[in-house]
Design a protein around this nucleic acid. Structure first.
Length: 412
DNA sequence: AGTCCACAGGAAGGGCAGGCGA
DNA sequence: TCGCCTGCCCTTCCTGTGGACT
């Protein structure tokens, strides 16, 4: 204790951190949000998108674009890159082009039809209340704002499937229809989705107008991922911190995850953070291993902690039933089924003085947990004994331990 | 071949909180 | 203040269904 006091008198407690050279030179460039000056292995996609958007610089109407591809294949970054280049050129040439980027998955921002239009209006400089106005009023205001001046408006709707799942495709129909009514301006939509089957789920009219141009982003292979990482390493880390073996490992791990570049970057960045915290001067493959586990752990525990109480209670029922089944001899044959989970859930509600929701609602909560990748469910038929969902946990032992501890403290 | 179970999951609508305009 | 609108969470009612059993 005395030692600390002595040290703090002579030296600031943060001085070690400040004085020690950092492994990072520009940590920002190791995040998915960073737009690099060069995007490897996406030349043809960038060329294609540029060709679609270029007529805007001559004041011509441009086609709607529909971009799809799995997670981390560069859809967002390429779109943002091309858009930013277009903005630059428009500024130089004094073209009237307005671009808006919106992520439809952002909670409380654009996850409903109302919020999407409220956000669009905000981007156009008009603020509307978070709730209270009829949707058609928002449509009208949006229409007026777009058509106020002669301009070309490009709206990038990222993760468009998330909004579609919640509210259907009416908003897309309305957005694409607005274009035919505009007198001065022209509106183009770039829809981006990770869901490869999304296009087929759309109404035929929406499908044909949204996918005037279509682009598919293929997953990166390990070699391409390595190139991408190399590009970022030069920017983000101080020289000599990352060796080739580490890059190979991050690339290989991410390649297993459907060629997800975001995953590769996360692994590298978190490995760097771990190494720095441990006071090491370079990143090793072991740091990458720890990073892999940490990323999964953080994602799941954070998700669980931020779930509403009812959803947590349902998850706790699943965990508890899972432990009980495991404790029994023949747990291998046993399954976690909706009915059993609902019985357990009711018991937990009684014990915790929690309002009991109906089975219908609990069924939806189970689906939501599935969507969050905390559990996986499969609809099975047991013939004479009905149809139900076979539920299993989708997290590893370490994560399971952590969330069980958290939920037991809350409900146990 | 027909029955029937135990749900899945769609549709409609209730109740609530919050905001707007008259 | 009131009527009307929204999103959100939830219930109620309903139809659909795969396959073991009869």
């Amino acid at each position: 204790m005395e030692l600390v006091t002595e040290k703090s008198l002579s030296q600031n407690i943060f001085s070690d951190y400040v004085e020690k050279p950092s492994l990072f030179s520009n940590k920002k460039s190791l995040t998915a949000a960073f737009i690099p000056s060069k995007i490897p292995h996406r030349d043809s996609e960038i060329t294609q998108l540029t060709a679609v958007l270029a007529p805007a610089l001559r004041g011509y109407h441009i086609n709607n674009v529909f971009i799809y591809g799995t997670c981390g294949t560069g859809k967002t970054i390429c779109s943002r890159f091309v858009i930013s280049q277009l903005e630059d050129m428009a500024r130089k040439n004094k073209n009237r082009i307005k671009t808006v980027y919106i992520n439809c998955k952002m909670k409380k921002v654009a996850d409903t039809e109302y919020r999407l239009f409220a956000q669009l209006l905000k981007e156009l400089g008009e603020t509307v209340p978070d709730t209270g106005l009829p949707t058609d009023v928002l449509y009208r205001k949006f229409f007026e704002q777009v058509d106020k001046d002669k301009q070309i408006m490009i709206i990038v709707l990222d993760e468009i499937d998330a909004l579609f799942k919640k509210v259907g495709d009416d908003f897309l129909y309305n957005l694409t229809r607005i274009n035919t009514e505009l007198k001065n301006s022209s509106l183009a939509i770039i829809g981006i989705t990770n869901d490869l089957s999304f296009r087929d789920k759309l109404d035929i009219r929406v499908k044909s107008s949204l996918s005037e141009e279509e682009m598919l982003f293929k997953p990166y292979n390990a070699l391409q991922l390595k190139n991408i990482l190399e590009e970022r390493v030069n920017n983000g880390f101080t020289a000599g911190v990352v060796d080739e073996a580490v890059l190979n490992k991050c690339a290989a791990l991410a390649a297993q995850e459907h060629g997800d570049a975001r995953r590769a970057l996360d692994l590298l960045r978190v490995a760097g953070e771990i190494a720095e915290r441990l006071g090491e001067t370079s990143i090793t493959e072991e740091h990458v291993d720890i990073a892999e586990e940490k990323i999964d752990m953080d994602r799941v525990t954070e998700t669980v902690k931020t779930q509403p109480k009812q959803s947590q209670a349902v998850l706790y029922s699943i965990l508890k039933l899972n432990t009980e089944l495991k404790a029994k001899e023949k747990w291998v044959d046993s399954r976690l089924l909706t009915g059993d989970i609902y019985s357990m859930y009711k018991q937990i509600c009684v014990n915790n003085n929690l309002k009991q929701l109906t089975q219908r609602r609990v069924s939806d909560l189970i689906s939501e947990l599935d969507m969050l990748s905390i559990i996986t469910t499969k609809v099975i038929s047991k013939g004479r004994y009905g149809r139900t969902r076979d539920i299993s946990l989708a997290v590893n032992e370490h994560v399971l331990e952590k969330i069980t501890k958290f939920l037991t403290e809350k409900f146990g």
